[in-house]
């Protein structure tokens, strides 16, 4: 019952994001601030994780290639496939659910418990538009973050192969170019866009509708992380079945 109620309230909130827009002169700085907080502020951790996980994928692929008849370019190929199809769009999004998601829930939740949201509404502002729309716009830049993750993951794999002595640069790069299917990239970016929307809206929902005090802000952030991750994993399964199945 509460699940159904929450799902209903979530979709009503989605509609409210686009109703009664806030004045552009007020909205513009909010968008820039959210781009800074949510996108620019995430680049460091995303780059770091992508580079090293790309390296680990390459090393593990080489270590598992014990048979001599396997082509040497397989390492580059396997790394590219796992990074582009799964690691960058899905795994990074789960990490972002923790980083960006808890930031969104706690900042909106704090505004709720300190009555800042009431203060907005007294001034006739559609608080959902004011708070969530800039995050939604900022996260339309999320595909750039994922592009960087893809690039650095593949580069990380290359570095690990060469410097770990698992293969040559030529073999790896040949593998990266092997059997490239453009639709895989489209599939990855469709996922990325959908995940960006979930990352902007589910944590906002938990922040906006929270009740209680400072302690509950922490709890709401945890709940938001769990549900954002669960929904991302389910939607990932659904989209993969539809687009690749």
């Amino acid at each position: 019952m509460t699940y159904l109620h929450n799902i209903g309230a979530y979709f009503i909130m989605i509609k409210d994001i686009f109703r009664r827009p806030t004045k552009w002169s007020v909205m513009k700085p909010l968008i820039f601030k959210d781009i800074d907080d949510l996108i620019i502020g995430s680049l460091g951790i995303v780059a770091f994780i992508s580079f090293f996980v790309g390296g680990v994928v390459a090393i593990q692929t080489s270590l598992n290639m014990t048979s001599p008849i396997m082509p040497k370019n397989l390492v580059g190929f396997a790394t590219r496939q796992s990074i582009i199809l799964e690691f960058a769009p899905t795994f990074i999004s789960i990490i972002m659910a923790g980083k960006v998601g808890s930031f969104i829930t706690s900042s909106i939740g704090t505004m709720r418990v300190t009555e800042q949201i009431d203060a907005l509404e007294v001034m006739g502002i559609n608080a959902i538009n004011y708070l969530v729309f800039p995050k939604f716009i900022a996260l339309t830049l999320y595909p750039f973050v994922i592009s960087i993750a893809m690039f650095l993951g593949v580069v990380g794999g290359l570095m690990a192969s060469i410097y770990g002595g698992y293969g040559t640069m030529e073999d790896y790069l040949e593998g990266v170019r092997l059997d490239f299917i453009p639709f895989h990239l489209i599939y990855a970016f469709i996922k990325t866009f959908v995940f960006a929307f979930l990352l902007a809206t589910i944590p906002s929902f938990y922040g906006y509708f929270m009740k209680g005090g400072a302690l509950e802000v922490g709890k709401a952030s945890t709940t938001a992380f769990v549900w954002t991750s669960v929904v991302i994993i389910l939607v990932n399964f659904l989209l993969t079945s539809i687009l690749l199945g």
Partner: peptide, 21 residues
């Protein structure tokens, strides 16, 4: 009309509710 009336109201919240950003 509601928005007009709202613009004629001021509210001081219990915890001040200043925008902390």
């Amino acid at each position: 009309e509601k928005i007009d009336l709202r613009s004629e109201m001021g509210m001081v919240f219990q915890g001040s509710a200043l925008f902390d950003s």
